Simulated assay, not measured.
Amino acid sequence: MTRIILVRHGETTWNIEGRYQGQEDTPLSERGLNQGHLLADGLRNIPIDLAISSPLQRSYQTCKFCADLHNLPVATDERLLEINHGSWEGVLAGDIQKQYPVEFAQWHREPEKVVMPGGGESLEDVRKRVRAAFDEYVTKYPDKTILVAAHDAVNKAIICDVLGLGMEHFWQIKQDNTCINVLECNEGVWRTVLLNATNHMGFLFSGIEQAGL
Rank of each mutant, 00 (worst) to 15 (best):
R3D: 12
K156Q: 09
S59Y: 01
T2W: 03
E124D: 12
L147P: 00
T13D: 15
Q61R: 15
R58I: 01
V74K: 12
H70C: 10
K64S: 11
I173Y: 03
V189Q: 13
S87E: 13
R109A: 11
H169D: 10
P101V: 08
A51P: 03
N34M: 13
L6D: 08
R191Q: 06
C185H: 07
E11N: 09
T139Y: 15
Y137K: 03
Y137H: 09
L39Y: 10
E82H: 04
D95F: 00
F104L: 01
L56D: 09
G120S: 03
H151G: 02
A105Q: 13
D135E: 13
T26Y: 08
G119W: 05
D77N: 15
V115T: 15
W190I: 04
L50K: 14
V115K: 15
L72C: 11
A149R: 08
G36P: 09
L43V: 02
F104M: 06
H37P: 02
D152N: 14
G18C: 11
W107P: 01
S87Y: 01
L28C: 03
A75P: 04
I5H: 07
R44S: 09
L56K: 09
V91F: 00
G212H: 05
M201Y: 12
L163V: 11
T145G: 02
D143H: 10
I158V: 14
Y60K: 05
E78V: 11
L204F: 13
A132W: 08
N34E: 15
V189H: 13
G212T: 08
A93E: 10
F205R: 15
K174E: 15
I83F: 02
E30W: 04
Y100Q: 14
E78W: 15
D161F: 00
E124A: 11
G42L: 03
L147R: 00
V162A: 07
V74L: 13
L39K: 11
N34G: 12
H85V: 01
R31P: 00
R191S: 05
G18P: 08
E112Q: 13
E110S: 09
N84I: 03
Q61E: 14
V193K: 10
S53L: 04
P27M: 05
R44N: 09
W171I: 04
D25T: 04
G119H: 06
P27Q: 06
N196P: 00
T26P: 05
A105C: 07
E112I: 01
V193S: 09
L50M: 14
L204W: 14
S54K: 02
H9Q: 08
R79G: 03
G18H: 10
N196K: 01
D161I: 00
L123N: 00
A40T: 01
N186T: 13
N199K: 14
T13Y: 15
D152R: 14
M167V: 08
Q172D: 13
A105V: 07
M116W: 06
F65R: 14
Q35K: 05
